[in-house]
């Protein structure tokens, strides 16, 4: 005989017991929910409220209601639009690089999956993604120093023209994307490795018997197996990139010019450098709206892809 106590409907129990149990249940759930509400929903509503005012952080008492003016100004602020474009470019370039190099690295470590040396090399390769992003940014700003950095020393040694990396207006955005993808390629690599591991060996054996070439194997066996994990990875990376801040903050601060300005840095500067918290809050609300739209869209896409 089995008693399904867990599934029993609370209402069917004696009243006193239900009361005691429901109180106990509340103790489990309420603190986290209330805490989360106070720390995310309340600040968000407050940001929404501030975004309708012209207000300085230093003179909070003098605020002027301006309605949606801050939002209207954002749409014509070339710096903000530039920041939106830049973060789109960084996200696009980074994710493409992460997928290509992540796949190559995953294939290499998949081939080495039974070797002890392979395990050690893989452990070393995943170190970047958990390391503090500002340290990653500073490591590369040291290596890529235009005149005294080791990278340009080696490039000059090879007889090639040394690029300006972070100091060149046209090149800086690409360099930032490279740094970002260097940190996160290991993540994509691990995701794809998990996907490759899930392929039954018989599929490879069958391909071998049929004399399939490597690109046939990749297209017919490997890519379908890793498609859904890669999709999860891409969604998480897009959401993370919308809050991309730390690396730019310690390397270029958005410069040279506005060439590496990104949305979170833009909002931060409005709040903390110019103290225009009404305008900064409007930018933050737009960033949140973008993440909600992207997440909703991506989640729907993911659900459809998994349904197939």
């Amino acid at each position: 005989m089995r008693f399904s106590v867990v599934d029993s409907i609370p209402g069917s129990r004696p009243k006193s017991q239900w009361d005691r149990e429901s109180r106990e249940r509340l103790i489990f759930l309420t603190p986290a929910v209330a805490y989360l509400f106070l720390l995310t929903v309340f600040p968000f509503l407050y940001s929404l409220y501030l975004s309708l005012y012209q207000v300085k952080l230093t003179r909070m008492d003098r605020k002027v209601f301006v309605g949606f003016d801050n939002y209207a100004n954002l749409l014509t602020d070339s710096l903000f639009l530039h920041a939106c474009l830049n973060i789109g470019i960084i996200t696009g370039i980074s994710i493409v690089i992460e997928i290509i190099f992540g796949f190559l690295a995953a294939k290499i470590f998949f081939a080495l999956r039974f070797s002890r040396a392979g395990g050690i090399l893989r452990s070393l390769s995943i170190l970047p993604m958990m390391i503090t992003p500002i340290c990653i940014g500073l490591i590369f700003s040291y290596i890529l120093n235009p005149t005294l950095g080791i990278a340009n020393y080696l490039i000059k040694g090879a007889g090639l023209p040394p690029p300006g990396w972070l100091s060149d207006q046209t090149f800086a955005l690409f360099t930032i994307s490279l740094i970002n993808s260097w940190q996160w390629t290991p993540f994509m690599m691990l995701l794809m490795l998990a996907g490759l591991m899930s392929i039954p060996t018989e599929h490879y054996e069958a391909a071998e018997v049929e004399g399939a070439r490597w690109w046939h194997v990749a297209r017919a066996i490997e890519i379908p197996a890793i498609k859904s994990v890669v999709l999860v990875g891409v969604i998480l990376r897009v959401i993370d990139n919308l809050r991309f801040f730390d690396i730019v903050y310690v390397t270029t601060r958005g410069g040279p010019g506005a060439s590496t300005e990104v949305v979170t840095l833009f909002a931060y500067k409005q709040d903390y450098q110019y103290f225009q918290i009404g305008y900064g809050s409007a930018a933050a609300v737009v960033i949140l709206a973008m993440s909600i739209v992207i997440t909703t869209f991506a989640a729907g896409y993911l659900r459809r892809a998994e349904g197939e």
């Binding site: 600040p43 809050r243 709040d271 933050a284 949140l288 993440s291």
Partner: peptide, 20 residues
């Protein structure tokens, strides 16, 4: 709902938390 609060970008909470 708990999962969705992870979408909240920290920048949207910075100023309100500062004031609080």
């Amino acid at each position: 709902w708990i999962l969705s609060t992870r979408m909240m970008p920290p920048i949207a909470a910075g100023v309100p938390l500062y004031i609080i």
